[in-house]
């Protein structure tokens, strides 16, 4: 499947799950900051991606869970170097450069972009 086709499907899912306009769904838009996603929307998005693409998403596979409370990843409100390396390995669809430049834990939400979802779906489809 072409990347543009994947993007269109992801866009359709986000428009439905988050009740946003199509033109708001740009590759660089962040799910929480720009599109107003809340935690339950993440589950809704996962369910809808499974339906749209026909693959299964395991818990924690698409988005990191419990990272902020886990000292393996975060200490003193910052993502540790070791934590960042682990996240990169676990979640290869995210662009972690925002955390590299500012490791504040609040910055994690910056990596949840539409583009990351497209990367995720592309990688899942390639692996299938």
């Amino acid at each position: 499947m072409e990347r543009s086709e994947i993007f269109d499907k992801v866009k359709e899912v986000l428009v439905d799950a988050l009740a946003v306009d199509e033109d708001e769904v740009t590759p660089e838009a962040t799910l929480i900051g720009d599109l107003g996603a809340e935690s339950i929307d993440i589950l809704d998005i996962s369910f809808q991606l499974e339906k749209a693409f026909g693959f299964k998403i395991a818990q924690g596979e698409l988005f990191p869970e419990g990272v902020a409370q886990d000292p393996q990843y975060v200490q003193d409100g910052k993502v540790t170097a070791n934590g960042l390396a682990l996240l990169r390995e676990r979640l290869p669809h995210f662009d972690f450069s925002a955390i590299e430049s500012d490791p504040s834990v609040a910055n994690i939400r910056q990596i949840f972009t539409v583009d990351a979802l497209v990367n995720f779906c592309e990688q899942k489809l390639q692996a299938a």
Partner: peptide
Amino acid sequence: LMFSHLDNNMGG
């Protein structure tokens, strides 16, 4: 509708 299993919430 969407339901959450509270003890398994993503926020921990």
